[in-house]
């Protein structure tokens, strides 16, 4: 069998495009559910104050789950970004009962259109592809649209030679899409294999919660893996494991800190330090390659 130069082969698959990107989209809505009590310390919290504090409890440092628009407002320079592939919409390939109804209900309840948003924005002055999942939309589950959007975003980073930052928040595969949702694990992972050949960094930030098929695919494939404090991160959910072993799980099992201790997370980073950390990491990977600010 003929030998090939794989490095250049995969480079050739990804020709660069030269369409100009536009910024200027700022989404100022608040999606955090109106919780008046912190789930960790039970102290009363005010939504406005939470918003000012990056949705971190100002009593006990509990990190509230936030959705894509809130995340982007915290992360992107001036809160500005350009969304792409926003128009993709789900089908019901298995004719699964109630899927359409549940999907519409999720749209209405969350104010979002899917469990992932893919954008280009600037972080610390550098153009970056950012992928953000929202647990608020059907548990952040991955169906065909989520898989396709993540794949396109990763390939866009490869084509344009941009760094890629990926925020995970998901209960796993979208079961209503059956085998198609399982295939998204391989699809997104293959896209990352192609990005790898371009030597552009993929920085994954694991947020609460990240489990199932999402953890067992792109969530664990970053060059750098960060995690927010106290986030639940695992393959099987805690209840499934307790059901298998018939005993209670130890304190802190499957939390970010546990994964750092076990060697699967590079670093646990509090939300307030995240932008600074990401800016440094992107700089460190791009500047060495001679990128301009």
């Amino acid at each position: 069998m003929a030998r090939i130069n794989v490095e250049t082969f995969f480079q050739k698959l990804l020709p660069r495009t030269k369409r100009n990107l536009q910024y200027g989209m700022v989404d100022d809505r608040v999606f955090v559910q109106k919780e008046h009590k912190c789930p960790t310390c039970s102290n009363p919290v005010e939504t406005d104050q939470l918003k000012e504090n990056a949705f971190v409890c100002y009593h006990c440092n509990h990190h509230f789950r936030i959705s894509a628009p809130e995340r982007l407002r915290l992360l992107a320079d001036n809160g500005e970004y350009q969304e792409f592939s926003g128009g993709l919409s789900s089908l019901n390939p298995l004719d699964f009962p109630d899927y359409e109804e549940r999907f519409s209900a999720a749209k209405e309840k969350s104010g979002l259109d899917e469990a992932v948003k893919t954008v280009v924005c600037k972080i610390g002055g550098r153009e970056t592809v950012v992928i953000v999942m929202s647990f608020q939309f059907m548990g952040g589950s991955m169906g065909s649209v989520v898989g396709e959007k993540i794949t396109r975003a990763v390939l866009l980073a490869a084509q344009r030679g941009l760094p890629c930052v990926l925020f995970t928040a998901s209960g796993g595969a979208r079961m209503q899409e059956g085998i198609y949702s399982l295939m998204q694990m391989a699809k997104t992972s293959h896209a990352i294999a192609l990005l790898e050949r371009t030597r552009m960094p993929l920085i994954v930030v694991l947020t609460d919660p990240t489990t199932g098929g999402v953890t067992a695919s792109f969530a664990m494939l970053g060059d750098i893996t960060l995690a927010e404090p106290e986030a639940l991160i695992g393959f099987a959910g805690p209840r499934v494991i307790e059901g298998t072993i018939k005993q209670k799980l130890p304190e802190g099992f499957q939390k970010s800190e546990f994964l750092q201790e076990k060697g699967f997370v590079d670093r646990v980073v509090p939300r307030k330090d995240l932008k600074k950390t990401l800016t440094f990491l992107i700089d460190a990977h791009i500047a060495i390659r001679g990128g301009k600010k």
Binding site: A216, S217, G234, F235, I245, K262
Partner: peptide, 21 residues
């Protein structure tokens, strides 16, 4: 894949993800 403590501790997600890629 086995859903247990040992499996999670040794990174079952990472092992599967790496294989896919």
């Amino acid at each position: 894949a086995f859903p247990g403590i040992s499996s999670e501790e040794r990174g079952i997600s990472e092992a599967i993800a790496r294989n896919l890629k």
